[in-house]
């Protein structure tokens, strides 16, 4: 379960020692393969297209700082950053609120049809959400939602709900029954118990599903590609793709723009790595 993750990590760190040279050699090789292309893109943004064409694999010489500034004003970077942020935050809020309410009922109520309802939600994990993109587009078009934030947010909340409920339910079930009984004896209703005791206790699990929802929304491409045609509403992945097809000959510009688009994700990941990893671990252990 998600709660076990953090203590076990810290416990192991305490006993860390220096590994053998072979361990470090292998780890370095693996790390190099993982980040070499990323480093190439970031460094490439500091070169000119002429430098890149002359020698594609060299370091910046001399360093050019203007490309990054240029793409920030030339593209719609700031608008796209804003759109991505609004959509990802709304998706996160939606999926956490809807998910925790449903997971609470599935975890703490006994009623006929509960397992059927749970199975109904988990069906969403069995088939690819992307398969339904064409009819989803038609539906959103008939609802007059194309070219609005809602056209991205609502389906993304729906796509993310099965995983959220699968992660949250065991977490909420694990909160001891004694706590609930004590709250009841003190005159609290079950909703009062949910609001005043269970929610504050589930902070870590909520952060985990929130982070997973945020990352999924931030990286999404297929759905925005279908439902956002208005340039002023485009998200970062659409922006990166458009920039790269619009200025094909401006290699340095594309590299700089791609780096800038990566930056928020990389910063966010460094900050929330434990939650992302913990969340995925929770998902398989739950």
């Amino acid at each position: 379960m998600a709660v076990d993750v953090v203590p076990s990590v810290t416990k192991k760190r305490r006993t860390a020692v220096w590994g053998s040279p072979l361990t470090y050699a292998l780890a370095l090789a693996v790390a190099a393969v993982s980040i070499a292309p990323v480093a190439y893109v970031i460094l490439g943004g500091f070169r000119t297209t002429a430098q890149i064409n002359a020698d594609p694999a060299a370091l910046p010489n001399p360093w050019v700082w203007t490309t990054y500034g240029r793409v920030l004003s030339q593209g719609n970077f700031w608008t796209e950053l804003w759109n991505s942020t609004v959509i990802a935050l709304s998706t996160t809020l939606g999926v956490v609120v809807l998910g925790v309410c449903a997971a609470f009922v599935l975890a703490r109520y006994t009623f006929r049809g509960r397992e059927v309802l749970y199975t109904y939600f988990t069906l969403g994990l069995l088939f690819p959400a992307g398969a339904a993109i064409l009819p989803l587009y038609l539906m959103l078009r008939d609802m007059d939602l194309i070219n609005s934030y809602y056209a991205v947010i609502l389906p993304q909340v729906a796509f993310q709900l099965p995983l959220t409920i699968v992660v949250l339910r065991p977490f909420l079930t694990a909160v001891p029954m004694e706590l609930e009984d004590a709250a009841m004896i003190d005159g609290s209703s079950r909703l009062g118990f949910f609001w005043r005791i269970l929610l504050p206790l589930s902070g870590p699990a909520l952060v985990t599903v929130g982070v997973l929802g945020f990352v999924a929304s931030w990286n999404a491409f297929l759905l925005p590609l279908f439902v956002i045609q208005d340039v002023s509403l485009q998200t970062l992945p659409l922006g990166v793709q458009n920039f790269s097809t619009q200025y094909t000959s401006d290699t340095a510009g594309i590299l700089a723009f791609t780096s800038l688009a990566m930056l928020p994700a990389l910063l966010f990941f460094t900050f929330a790595e434990r939650q992302i990893v913990g969340g995925l671990q929770g998902a398989i252990k739950g």
């Binding site: 192991k12 760190r13 006993t15 860390a16 020692v17 220096w18 590994g19 053998s20 361990t23 470090y24 780890a27 370095l28 693996v30 790390a31 993982s34 980040i35 990323v38 990352v215 931030w218 990286n219 491409f221 970062l236 992945p237 659409l238 990166v240 793709q241 791609t258 688009a261 990566m262 994700a265 990389l266 966010f268 990941f269 460094t270 790595e273 992302i276 990893v277």
Partner: peptide, 23 residues
């Protein structure tokens, strides 16, 4: 394996997974 700097290497190895597919 337990070795100093493991957390840092883990972080680097996960980087490709968090980048957007488009990027």
């Amino acid at each position: 394996r337990r070795f100093r700097g493991r957390a840092f290497f883990r972080l680097l190895v996960f980087v490709p997974y968090v980048l957007a597919e488009v990027t």
